[in-house]
């Protein structure tokens, strides 16, 4: 799940300056779960923008805004409303915004900040556990990712800031190496901690990422 959060209304309004007519676009997947760009948020945004003197030409919640073909098709189904607008306000992640912007020369305003790939702890509570590093080491680390959970991404054990098994950057949070140690110990696999892990291959996460599945 891509975790996103709505930008403050003041920021959205300032981005919409000079655009009197606005078409609203949401996403039915991640942005809906994050309560940032689903049906409900599109409705609230419509109210807020109307109150601020904007004219809303129409709106749509795309099933998966990151799906470029589907996004293009859905927008064509609302062609007239889109044409009428001075700007498209997209309440979807950065990928969703770019599905939209790639299909139209119109001014596209990003209404969300895209934060991370997140797990859902419970409704409305998200946590980053994977940083999409392209070189998964979870098998070696008891199924807990130090690349992501350690603020320094350390691969060979805790830093000097570990205090009673807690992280120097957040005393409330357990050090990920403490968690890994506990897990491996319970599994009788603590020997894994003796292995020196070589420098990470960051070329696996060079931007922009591309993948084409070969048949």
């Amino acid at each position: 799940m891509i975790i996103s959060k709505q930008k403050p209304l003041s920021e959205i309004l300032s981005a919409l300056e000079g655009s009197a007519r606005v078409f609203l676009i949401g996403c039915a997947k991640c942005a809906t779960v994050c309560k940032a760009g689903g049906e409900e948020e599109i409705w609230q945004m419509q109210e807020a923008l109307t109150a601020a003197g904007k004219e809303i030409t129409g709106s749509i919640v795309i099933d998966e805004a990151c799906h470029m073909l589907r996004s293009g098709r859905d927008l064509r189904s609302k062609k007239e409303m889109v044409e009428e607008a001075d700007a498209l306000l997209v309440l979807a992640c950065g990928a969703g915004v770019q599905s939209v912007s790639s299909g139209t020369p119109k001014k596209t305003v990003a209404g969300l900040d895209t934060l991370f790939l997140g797990n859902i702890r419970r409704f409305g509570q998200f946590e980053q556990k994977c940083s999409l590093c392209g070189e998964c080491i979870l098998t070696e680390t008891g199924g807990i990712c130090p690349v992501t959970v350690c603020p320094k991404g350390l691969l060979n054990g805790p830093c000097g800031g570990m205090d009673n098994g807690h992280c120097e950057t957040d005393p409330e949070a357990e050090c990920v190496w403490y968690q890994i140690h506990e897990r491996l110990q319970s599994r009788g696999a603590v020997e894994k901690l003796r292995r020196t892990v070589p420098p990470k291959d960051f070329s696996r996460m060079l931007k922009p990422g591309k993948l084409k599945i070969e048949k």
Binding site: G157, P158, G160, M162, N164, G165, L193, R194
Partner: peptide, 12 residues
């Protein structure tokens, strides 16, 4: 630092 055994792996 506690737990010390954990830091010991890294020192080694």
């Amino acid at each position: 630092a506690e737990p010390f055994p954990l830091t010991l792996y890294k020192l080694e």
